[in-house]
Amino acid sequence: MNPRDLDHVLLRKIRSAYERARLRHALIKGWPGLLFVVAIAIEAPEAFRLLVALAIYATVALAIYIGGSAGRAAQLSAWAAWIPFLIVRLAESRTHSCLGGACVSWCLPACVLGGSSAGGLVGWLGRKADDPFAYLIASVGILFLGGSLGCECAGLSGLIGIAGGALLGASTPFLVHKRFEAP
């Protein structure tokens, strides 16, 4: 073999070192996801909710490790997920409003509003991503997990509300970009 050529052993070492370094980088850069763990630990440290909070961190770190559009989505979504997280808590402080004899719970609307506004923000910032599909999967997944830590106030419909809101909010800018802005 010509010593000027790269041999497969060195290539294997390069790939291995690269993957290890990427994993370390992802675990460190994924720190915004850990803030949810801290928040839940302070608010109401139940095992299931802590697991969901850890899942946010794991999803953020995994997306950063994978890289590309998913990595970009993860870092934005880890911060944007605070929008539904906080909106739902604000709504829960006003459990329901009554007008005359009718009363309305704000939980479900808050989940939809929180998901769609966070999704819209993340979708708008990433509308020119090279891989929109990977971007959407990562962003909607993280927003759903963040919003779900509160949307259980409306039960299953709350979870569907946050997921639907995030998906609609995040995908709309991509569709607009494709229809009106893309060459």
Binding site: P3, R4, L6, L10, L11, G67, G71
Partner: peptide
């Protein structure tokens, strides 16, 4: 640097003779 693994080998092959 952004995570495109398919770019590793071609880049390594280009850089190896230069660095060597």
């Amino acid at each position: 640097s952004e995570g495109d693994r398919s770019a590793i080998e071609p880049l390594a092959r280009e850089l190896w003779p230069l660095v060597r």
